[in-house]
């Protein structure tokens, strides 16, 4: 008998909206206990995949299991073991934030008084007495986050959970997520920003146009962490093309730019320093750049 070790297993998933193929043979596998980054640009199919995983949408093809169960048939059994934070949280306009949080906890068969709800309200600096219609986007997000983090759960499904949060609150979110990770909770964290999931993700799946482009650990996807460095130098330009870990060198007058792996960074900096560096910027690659890379490497 096969032991089910993966919390989420998606194979060749297809979802049609009319004629549009929202998901077109998507692959995703999330092992128990890992934090899995689910990356893709807007409209790539992240939310659609998550809705299929939650049994809200019916797949048109492929296989999907969560905890080894079929999300379409066994939705409630799966839902007892997970918490979900949608990307755009909508709350009931005439319920207070506190009422909504307690309602969502009770709907997961939890007693709010036995959870860490009050502590999280403080950490997120959230006023639970306002009516739903009065909350800003960030505050609506906090309603879902507090409800999700308040009690232990086997799986957290987070769909762009930090959209609308200010940097301070994003920090609180990251702390909460790190605590959960330490407790062994499986996390599916979707985002369109690589650096957002980089800190905590064990593995990453990148999708585009309903298809999986890349999947693996961050070490495996080393080229994902290649920074684009741009420098202006005062002296003569050294030849950078031979340096280990430095790629795609372009020269324009006194300005040189190159992609560099983390291992190649010290060498590059030494070379630039010798050339009398005047200014230097280093930026992580955008998702679009990654896709270009991924397409290049797969010949697609």
């Amino acid at each position: 008998m096969e032991v089910v070790s993966n919390a989420i297993e998606v194979h060749d998933l297809v979802k049609l909206f009319g004629r549009a193929r929202a998901l077109d043979g998507l692959e995703l596998s999330v092992s128990a206990g890992e934090v899995h980054g689910f990356l893709g640009p807007n409209g790539a199919g992240k939310s659609t995949t998550i809705r299929v995983l939650l049994g809200l949408l019916r797949a048109d093809g492929g296989t999907t299991t969560v905890f080894g169960l079929d999300p379409w048939r066994d939705a409630t059994a799966i839902h007892r073991r997970l918490a979900y934070v949608p990307g755009d949280v909508s709350v009931w306009p005439n319920l207070s934030g506190g009422e909504t949080i307690d309602l969502l906890l009770r709907m997961r068969d939890l007693d709010p008084r036995a959870t860490r709800r009050d502590e999280l309200l403080q950490r997120f600096e959230f006023d639970p007495t306002k009516k739903g219609r009065a909350y800003s986007k960030g505050n609506r997000q906090k309603v879902a986050l507090v409800a999700a983090f308040a009690a232990p759960t086997d799986l957290l499904v987070l769909d762009e959970p930090t959209s609308g949060l200010d940097p301070l609150m994003e920090q609180v979110f990251n702390e909460c997520l790190a605590e959960r990770k330490a407790e062994g909770t499986t996390v599916l964290l979707s985002s369109h920003i690589l650096s957002e999931v980089e800190r905590l993700a064990d593995r990453v799946t990148i999708i585009r146009r309903g298809r999986t482009v890349e999947s693996g650990t961050l070490t495996e996807l080393r080229h994902l962490r290649r920074n684009r460095v741009r420098a202006e130098v005062s002296g003569p330009l050294p030849d950078l093309t031979d340096l280990a870990g430095v790629h795609d060198v372009e020269v324009d007058g006194r300005v040189v730019s190159a992609s560099v792996d983390p291992v190649g960074l010290p060498l590059l900096l030494k070379a630039l320093d010798a050339a009398g560096v005047v200014s230097l910027t280093s930026a992580p690659p955008t998702l679009e750049e990654l896709f270009l890379d991924a397409y290049r490497s797969t010949g697609g």
């Binding site: 319920l95 207070s96 007495t129």
Partner: peptide, 21 residues
């Protein structure tokens, strides 16, 4: 807009109670 309760009543715990609320 009057403020609401900071906590939900124990009865407000399922879809039926939500709709009636």
């Amino acid at each position: 807009d009057r403020p609401g309760p900071a906590r939900g009543a124990p009865r407000l715990g399922d879809a039926l109670a939500l709709v009636w609320r």
